[in-house]
Design a protein around this nucleic acid. Structure first.
Length: 603
RNA sequence: GCGCUCAUAGCUCAACUGGAUAGAGCAUCUGCCUUCGAAGCAGAGGGUUGGGGGUUCAAGUCCCUCUGAGCGCACCA
């Protein structure tokens, strides 16, 4: 990948230079520490200020070993490193200059440009791809909404983070299975059945069915406060569902069908995809095996009438497998799911994109798995606990109110999307009324704006849902990236010639242009980091940097204060600049795709 | 009460996992369209990184402590 070859050359030269400059100490310690190429390579950092160089080696740590002050070391070694770089065949494009306690490495921009732009233009959409994941399987569970409830903004984060991770891992060559695991089982269906029997009318299944069902659900909770006996009825109703009483099952199937139709429509709008969808009920007949396996291992015990696994962690409550009444629980189900997935996929990694409020639940689950593996003395090959990761994320907060389905205090995702799209459409009407596909474009941008708000900060942070922010398209937003993309497309249309391969890259000699190329070079590492940390925001913040860097080029003024245009009478210069345009557009579009955003060519 | 996660500009967030002068956007103010797309660009103001200790050449980043917030704390998912 892009930068590595330069770092490698620098590391070789630096290690050699240290050996040459400190022969006595080198003889003592041998080819270790700074005298070793790999050691130097690993210690390289990226300077905060790009003018300091492309990468740098701080020497503070070596002061003790070399028995000299950091600036003295730098003064002695920097010229030697540079000499070694010059002596390579061919001479390396890397240069070394010392500043204070840092050995800074700069790269000849001509080499940098040719290398970077050449690589991007050659590989096109494949730029940034890798094969590090080939032969490995990653499962990503995300979205997982609840049947018979509306799709609220609360489910948005899991959905878009998971969707993005699925794409990012695919880019790296992994075999990825995106899993949607909707909540289609549990006592809330008892409540729904009771509410439906008591208050539904022929109108309930007409019009906005999901909203009508929500109304029933909310009504159940308000009435149940006055009439607690409703709760008993709900339990009984769920019991009848569990024992497959036909009428209860029929209603349940009905709820499922309605919800899935609704969810699929929303996933269509969002552009979110899954490879596998199964609800909680799918695991109903798979839990008993897990329970008896744990019993056989002697890990279970009875506590307050419930079947539990005592965990040796004092900060975790025991893991409940069965309630007093013998019914299974969420945890039991997730354990069964983990084993089923393992049997099915033999995954290398299994991610659960679920809110941080469930951190303890996953800790319990992992602990149970660890105890089981320990007890059964499973070889590493058969252990799944270390392959399972809870990819947690913060809440979506709404003002000072917490959102609660029970009280009907919830923001419906589709309302948010509709408002965003409508506002975008209005904006297009003002600015570009002749646009061919206004509705389609407005949808891509409006939906993209909403998705981007969920991916622009670290997962862990709580995000405030503020209408004003969601509907703002200026600054660090999805539409900003899309606008930049559309502008790049516009340049290509105006240029109206293929970007050639015979280009004099040295014509791109402005600071702003070099910055863009440096940003382009970062893309592969950014994608890899995003996967390693399960953080799509690495990609989103990177794209903002890239777009900003390009926009500076686009509106750079010459000495006379006039915009120095990309396309000019100078054919050579225009060709070189258009190569840059094409490379940026390629990366921008691909990056947007990784986040789950569309990249319209006009807007 | 215990545990987990946090606290950075008025607001929303960055800071390469211990390195050089803590950076962006929003908001406010000032410039830039006789056309490569102004959903943009340039500039200005705005900071004791919640308080206090410590670790070391170096701390927003690691450790301790205090304050404050969010989320958990077995028969919901």
């Amino acid at each position: 990948m892009a930068l590595e070859i330069y770092k490698e050359a620098f590391a070789i030269a630096a290690a050699a230079a240290f050996r040459e400059s400190y022969p006595d100490i080198h003889r003592e310690v041998g080819d270790a520490e700074v005298f070793q190429r790999q050691f130097v390579y690993a210690a390289l950092e990226k300077p905060k200020d790009p003018r300091m160089g492309r990468f740098a080696l701080p020497v503070f740590k070596f002061a003790k070993l070399l028995k000299e002050s950091p600036p003295a070391i730098v003064g002695r070694v920097a010229p030697v490193i540079d000499r070694h770089l010059r002596a390579m065949t061919p001479p390396s494009p890397v240069h070394c200059t010392g500043t204070g306690a840092f050995l800074n490495a700069g790269i000849d921009s001509a080499s940098l440009l040719k290398q970077a732009l050449g690589a991007i233009l050659d590989s096109a959409v494949a730029y940034g791809a890798s094969s590090i994941g080939s032969g490995k399987t990653v499962l990503v569970e995300y979205s997982s909404p609840n049947i018979a409830k509306p799709f609220g903004v609360g489910h948005l984060r899991s959905t878009v983070i998971g969707n993005s991770l699925r794409r990012i891992f695919k880019k790296l060559g992994y075999n990825v299975v995106g899993i949607n695991y909707p909540g289609d089982w549990g006592t809330q269906f008892g409540k729904m059945i009771v509410a439906y029997r008591l208050w539904s009318t022929p109108e309930t299944l007409r019009g906005d069915v999901v909203a009508n069902l929500l109304e029933l659900y909310v009504r159940f909770h308000t009435e149940a406060e006055k009439h607690p006996e409703l709760e008993d009825q709900a339990r009984a109703a769920f019991k009848s569902l569990e024992s497959a009483e036909p009428e209860a099952v029929r209603l349940w199937e009905e709820f499922k069908q309605i919800s899935h139709a609704e969810f699929d429509r929303i996933y269509g709008i969002l552009g979110v995809e899954f490879d596998l969808v199964y609800g909680e009920s799918f695991l109903n007949d798979k839990m008993e095996a897990v329970i008896s396996r744990l019993e056989k291992d002697g890990l279970t015990s009875m506590s307050r009438g419930a079947l539990v696994v005592e965990l040796d962690d004092p900060n975790l409550p025991p893991a409940l497998l069965k309630k007093q009444d013998g019914a299974t629980l969420y945890l039991t189900r997730d354990l069964a799911g983990a084993f089923w997935r393992w049997a099915e996929y033999r995954f290398d990694l299994s991610l659960y994109v679920v809110g941080s409020s469930q951190a303890d639940h996953f800790r319990q689950m992992l602990k149970v798995l660890e105890l089981l593996e320990q007890k059964e003395q499973l070889p590493d090959m058969e252990r799944l606990s270390s392959r399972i990761k809870h990819v947690d994320f913060g809440w979506i907060k709404f003002g000072d109110k917490s959102m609660s389905t029970r009280r009907g205090n919830i923001i419906i995702l589709e309302d948010v999307l509709d408002r965003a799209v409508a506002l975008v459409k209005q904006r297009i009407m003002e600015k570009n009324p002749d646009l061919a596909e206004i509705d389609k474009t407005a949808s891509i941008i409006g939906v993209g704006a909403v998705i981007f708000t969920q991916l622009s900060a670290r997962r862990q942070r709580d995000v405030n849902f503020v209408w004003e922010d969601v509907l703002n398209f200026d600054g660090e937003t999805g539409p900003y990236l899309q606008y930049t993309h559309a502008r790049l497309c516009s340049l290509e249309r105006n240029y109206n010639k293929p970007v050639g391969s015979d280009i004099d890259f040295s014509l791109l000699d402005h600071e702003e242009e070099i910055r863009v190329v440096e940003a382009l070079l970062e893309f592969p590492a950014i994608v890899a980091d995003a996967a390693a940390q399960y953080e799509p925001y690495y990609v989103s913040s990177y794209l903002l940097r890239l777009a900003a860097a390009f926009n500076k080029v686009y509106q750079r003024k010459d000495e006379a204060g006039r915009i120095d245009k990309i396309i000019s009478d100078n054919a050579e210069l225009s060709a070189a600049r258009m190569a840059l345009v094409k490379a940026v557009r390629t990366v921008l579009k691909e990056g947007l795709y990784l986040l789950g955003l569309g990249a319209p060519e006009e807007m």
